[in-house]
């Protein structure tokens, strides 16, 4: 059990939580507004790639961050347009975004930077140590703290602001929201695009938060673990964060226990098993927003 008291385990748990919690909260925004979003993986890749690219081109990792997030928002906006305006199947669209983003980032990586990978002199975001908090908060990416702030702000936004109330209303019953005088489409755009920007931020963390390079498919399925975290967290920011923490812990534990007879692969299954159980109502029932995934077409 000495593993559990090792601060390194908890530090890496936090580090692994960031790229799960951000897209999970991003997905929460989208689905709370009523648009099913399985495109987090692809949007993260876009964020990761353009984070590195703009960081290298501008020399500023902060500009890289902002532009990477904006590119993620742009892709999310296109997704949103097709999902909302064209009432296209949101799951199929999400797949399209994932395949497209995976291909596009690999393609641009090779055409813009050649086959040798991104330049090693790309600047990355700073690491921060919080004094007095011990080794767990030593040398963590600045985005860890940003993520913690986002958890709090997102919770406040969704549950304590007027806009948040409206977004939730649109995801539960768009017809009721429409008759109450809300603009259903605009609110859904906001949810999907804000969600996309958060997912992209998760990608930025992977590329210039803890590294300073981009690699093909470097998200490695995190967008889908985030999807699981969002469901297991019952479509709330705090729940998504806690689920991401649990899943991050499972991963970190797997790494820590490597070579000690416990299979990291079996530990990696935990998020997915828990999600199925939660959906089937065996571990605290997770119920999606009532109008999640159903396009709304006003009849006039």
């Amino acid at each position: 059990m000495s593993v559990l008291t090792n601060p390194q385990l908890w530090a890496s748990t936090l580090a692994m939580t960031v790229p799960l919690a951000l897209p999970a909260i991003g997905g929460t925004f989208s689905e709370r507004a009523g648009v099913v979003n399985i495109a987090m993986e692809g949007i993260m890749l876009i964020g990761a790639f353009f984070g590195v690219a703009f960081s290298y081109w501008t020399g500023s990792p902060w500009l890289g961050l902002v532009l990477g997030v904006l590119m993620g928002g742009l892709l999310a906006a296109i997704f949103a347009w097709a999902a909302i305006r064209l009432a296209a199947d949101q799951v199929v669209l999400g797949m399209a975004v994932n395949i497209f983003a995976s291909g596009l980032t690999a393609f641009l990586l090779n055409t813009l930077f050649g086959y040798g990978g991104t330049p090693p002199e790309t600047p990355s975001l700073p690491f921060v140590s919080l004094p007095g908090l011990g080794p767990v908060f030593a040398h963590q990416s600045v985005l860890l703290y940003v993520m913690l702030a986002i958890v709090v702000i997102s919770h406040w936004f969704l549950f304590h602001t007027r806009l948040g109330l409206r977004i939730r209303a649109v995801g539960e019953n768009p017809l009721a929201a429409d008759t109450a005088g809300l603009n259903v489409w605009r609110l859904r755009y906001i949810g999907v695009i804000v969600g996309g920007m958060l997912s992209a931020l998760g990608g930025v963390y992977l590329s210039i938060g803890i590294l300073n390079s981009f690699d093909v498919d470097m998200t490695n399925g995190r967008g889908f673990i985030a999807l699981a975290a969002m469901i297991f967290g019952k479509w709330t920011p705090v729940g998504s964060f806690l689920a991401s923490l649990l899943f991050g812990f499972a991963t970190a534990l797997g790494v820590a226990l490597q070579g000690q007879g416990v299979s990291p692969d079996l530990l990696s299954m935990i998020p997915y098993v828990l999600t199925i159980l939660a959906l089937a109502g065996l571990v605290g029932r997770s119920t999606p927003p009532a109008a999640d995934g159903i396009p709304y077409t006003p009849i006039r």
Partner: peptide, 20 residues
């Protein structure tokens, strides 16, 4: 780069979904 084919695949799926 061969990854262009993935870009094409993604676009095809997008257009199939967005037939409207």
């Amino acid at each position: 780069p061969s990854s262009l084919t993935d870009v094409l695949t993604g676009l095809i799926v997008f257009f199939v979904a967005a037939e409207r």
